[in-house]
Amino acid sequence: MAFDENNAQRIRTFLQHKEADFFEKRMFGGLVFMVDNKMCCGIRMDKQTGENLLLCRIGDKAYEDALERDDIIPMPNSERPMKNYIFVTENGWQRNQDLEFWLELCLEFNPLAKASKKK
């Protein structure tokens, strides 16, 4: 599982500053941050390009707006993109203010997000 530890620390710092109840889980070939026991955001390195990607779980309106941007990749599923999940390419979140923008959207949606069913 490949991810950039410096970027993981940037996310940890943000979530701690926001006093979010979070823990980390290795998933999707990277690291996911669970807030209130729900997937909120994450990071991973693209195997083909080596680019750092930010995984965001965001609300419907933010999702639709995000798809209009050049630095967004819909999170693929077997047949169609997974609604409310996007990857932000490196140039869309390397500046702290850009990272904070995306993480704020993730935290805003988190109370509305459904938790995964326990197996």
Rank of each mutant, 00 (worst) to 15 (best):
A2H: 12
F3C: 07
F3G: 09
D4I: 08
N6M: 11
N7H: 10
N7E: 12
Q9T: 09
Q9Y: 08
R10V: 00
I11F: 06
R12H: 09
T13M: 07
F14A: 05
H17T: 14
H17C: 03
K18D: 00
E19F: 07
E19N: 11
E19K: 15
D21H: 11
F22L: 06
F23L: 10
E24M: 05
E24S: 05
R26W: 03
R26T: 14
R26V: 14
M27Q: 13
F28Q: 12
F28Y: 15
F28P: 01
F28G: 07
G29P: 05
G29N: 12
G30L: 05
L31P: 00
V32C: 13
F33W: 02
F33V: 01
M34I: 15
M34T: 03
M34C: 13
D36T: 06
D36H: 03
M39D: 11
C41A: 15
C41S: 11
G42W: 09
G42N: 13
I43W: 06
M45R: 12
M45S: 10
K47D: 12
Q48S: 14
T49V: 06
G50C: 06
E51I: 05
E51M: 07
L53N: 06
L53Q: 13
L54A: 09
L55M: 15
R57V: 10
I58S: 02
G59C: 09
D60T: 12
D60H: 09
K61T: 14
K61F: 02
A62T: 06
Y63I: 09
Y63L: 07
Y63S: 01
E64V: 13
D65Q: 13
A66L: 01
L67R: 04
E68K: 14
E68Q: 15
E68M: 13
E68A: 14
R69P: 00
D70Y: 07
D71S: 02
D71R: 02
I72K: 00
I73R: 11
P74I: 07
P74E: 10
M75L: 14
N77R: 14
N77L: 13
S78Y: 11
E79C: 08
E79D: 15
R80E: 14
P81L: 10
M82K: 14
K83N: 07
K83Y: 08
Y85N: 13
I86N: 09
V88S: 04
T89M: 10
T89H: 02
T89N: 06
T89W: 01
T89I: 02
T89Q: 10
T89F: 02
E90M: 01
N91E: 13
N91W: 03
N91D: 12
W93G: 00
Q94W: 05
Q94G: 01
R95E: 15
N96P: 12
N96H: 10
Q97P: 00
Q97V: 06
Q97A: 10
D98G: 03
L99E: 09
L99W: 03
E100W: 05
F101T: 08
F101M: 11
F101K: 11
W102I: 02
L103M: 03
L103R: 06
C106A: 05
N110L: 04
N110Y: 03
L112A: 10
L112C: 07
L112R: 12
L112M: 13
A113L: 09
K114G: 13
K114P: 00
K114D: 10
A115G: 14
A115I: 11
K117I: 14
K117E: 14
K119V: 06
K119I: 12
K119Y: 08
K119G: 00
